[in-house]
Amino acid sequence: MRRDRRPYFIRRLQNGWLRFYTRKYIAPAFDAVGPGLSVTSPRDIEIWGGNIRVGACAHIHASRGNPTRLCTWTTDGREGRLTLGDYVLVSPGTQIIASESIEIGSNTMIASGCYISDSDWHDTYDRTRELGKHAPIVIGENVWLGVRVIVGKGVTIGDNSIIGAGSVVTRDIPANSIAAGNPARVVREIDTSRAMRKRADLFNDPALGERDMDRLMRYLLRENTLFGWLRSVFSPTRED
């Protein structure tokens, strides 16, 4: 597909259904969820277990064939805890699985295909039990995890830090750092004297932002027709 052929009213209907589905089937799966939860492809989002909490204006995305999983596990009578702060972005294909505790700070962005787990899930010599192979993970505020980053048990990543794509984080990363590699090591420091915009800045006036997006959608889809959209669905051409 080269462009969105949907007419404006179809896009509005689909967005309304998405909001309804999110309120009806996604939000109740959390122990607590703040206002402004936004999801894409909700049928490809799996939320499993208790003690999962999400702050305000969280964006949790999935896509067909690229599901996203937020999960807590009960082991030896201990149920894991998973907490996401405000304005957190979770991209398609990410798995976050807590045996003990995973905390993700506000404004943190998690790119596609990341894996975050606070447990090895099996002991070195007893492959049938987890035993002591678990430790809490703390990911600070305004952290950016690149594509396919792996974060292992017991790791703390400090505020504002960036983890390069494909990195494996096995030890703590200090705040205001850029780290990369396997295992991830600090390769540069962030200049803290420079002003930094965060995802929260996108939500200073949520109502205004929603109106602006609606105007933009109306403008971009202004030439689309119902017939043209149906034709592109059932008989697409090179132009679609």
Results as ranks from 00 to 15, higher is better:
26 I>A: 10
38 S>V: 02
67 P>R: 12
108 T>A: 02
21 Y>P: 00
107 N>Y: 05
64 R>E: 13
33 V>W: 02
109 M>N: 03
63 S>D: 15
85 G>F: 14
82 L>D: 09
46 E>G: 04
23 R>C: 06
110 I>L: 11
63 S>M: 15
22 T>V: 04
36 G>F: 13
49 G>M: 09
28 P>M: 15
49 G>S: 12
78 R>T: 05
40 T>R: 15
102 I>L: 08
42 P>Y: 05
22 T>G: 07
23 R>Y: 12
23 R>S: 11
64 R>C: 03
16 G>C: 03
26 I>G: 05
21 Y>S: 10
74 T>N: 07
97 I>Q: 02
97 I>G: 01
43 R>L: 12
31 D>N: 15
16 G>T: 01
18 L>K: 11
16 G>M: 06
34 G>P: 11
39 V>D: 07
92 P>I: 00
100 E>R: 14
44 D>M: 12
31 D>L: 02
111 A>V: 00
94 T>I: 00
105 G>K: 01
90 V>R: 09
62 A>C: 02
31 D>G: 15
55 G>L: 06
38 S>Y: 14
60 I>V: 13
75 T>K: 14
105 G>R: 03
23 R>A: 14
76 D>F: 11
56 A>N: 12
78 R>H: 12
69 R>W: 15
46 E>L: 08
40 T>E: 09
75 T>N: 13
59 H>S: 11
80 G>R: 13
67 P>G: 10
105 G>H: 06
26 I>H: 11
55 G>R: 05
67 P>M: 12
106 S>T: 05
49 G>V: 08
101 S>P: 00
101 S>N: 12
77 G>N: 04
62 A>S: 14
81 R>N: 12
36 G>Y: 15
60 I>Y: 11
